[in-house]
């Protein structure tokens, strides 16, 4: 059975420390001022003293029905052999169709390469070698869980079997591979 790599963001455990943000920059040589992932704060909501706040990691949602792949005129945006959405910088002409098509605002034009850029799940440098993505590896709160969702013994499969994983903008039918678990979020 083909693998399906997925990531769960256990929002209650995310402390917004941006270790993931910085780890990603160095792992992937992301240019100054640009980010493949960031974890902004949501809130505080409410009225003093009854307030709440959490952080929500943003990055490519690794859609299984990805609008970026669909609109790409040169097939630079594609699913690789493991179903991971990647950009072939060689084929990308920088037309930005994918930037517009992405409902998650996850893409940008890399200042150094001129090609569309985004999270790759650290496919080449890490995941293809059996490691987890850099953000997952460094996550201080332990909020990020990565693995093969179809492997029932994987940590992520177990986690998702016990907790409701929500996807962003489900109504778009993009079938993201990033699940947000909000259980325990105040």
């Amino acid at each position: 059975m083909a693998k399906h790599y997925a990531m769960a963001v256990v929002v209650a455990k995310c402390i917004g420390c941006q270790a993931c943000t910085v780890a990603c920059k160095f792992q992937n040589n992301v240019p100054e001022g640009q980010y493949r992932t960031k974890t902004p704060v949501v809130g505080p909501k409410g009225t003093f003293p009854n307030v709440s706040m959490y952080f929500e990691k943003q990055a490519c949602q690794m859609c299984q029905n990805a609008p970026c792949v669909e609109v790409c005129p040169t097939k630079a945006s594609h699913y690789n052999e493991a179903g991971v959405v990647l950009v072939d910088v060689d084929k990308c002409v920088g037309c930005k169709y994918c930037l517009t098509a992405c409902p998650y605002d996850a893409r940008f034009i890399n200042k150094d390469t001129g090609a569309a850029d985004k999270c790759t799940f650290c496919w080449e440098a890490r995941v293809s070698k059996g490691q987890v993505p850099a953000c997952v590896s460094t996550c201080v709160g332990g909020a990020l869980v990565f693995g093969d969702e179809k492997d029932s013994n994987s940590e992520i499969a177990k986690l998702l079997s016990k907790n409701k994983g929500e996807v962003r903008k489900e109504e778009f039918g993009t079938r993201p591979s990033i699940y947000y678990i909000f259980e325990g979020v105040k």
């Binding site: 420390c17 941006q18 270790a19 943000t21 910085v22 780890a23 920059k25 160095f26 792992q27 850099a134 590896s137 460094t138 996550c139 201080v140 332990g142």
Partner: peptide, 21 residues
């Protein structure tokens, strides 16, 4: 090119913070 947590250190679980990174 990169700083990571020590993979064998149980106290950090291989994590480091944004500053360490």
């Amino acid at each position: 090119v990169k700083a990571e947590g020590h993979p064998n250190d149980a106290s950090t679980g291989g994590s480091i913070c944004a500053r360490g990174n």
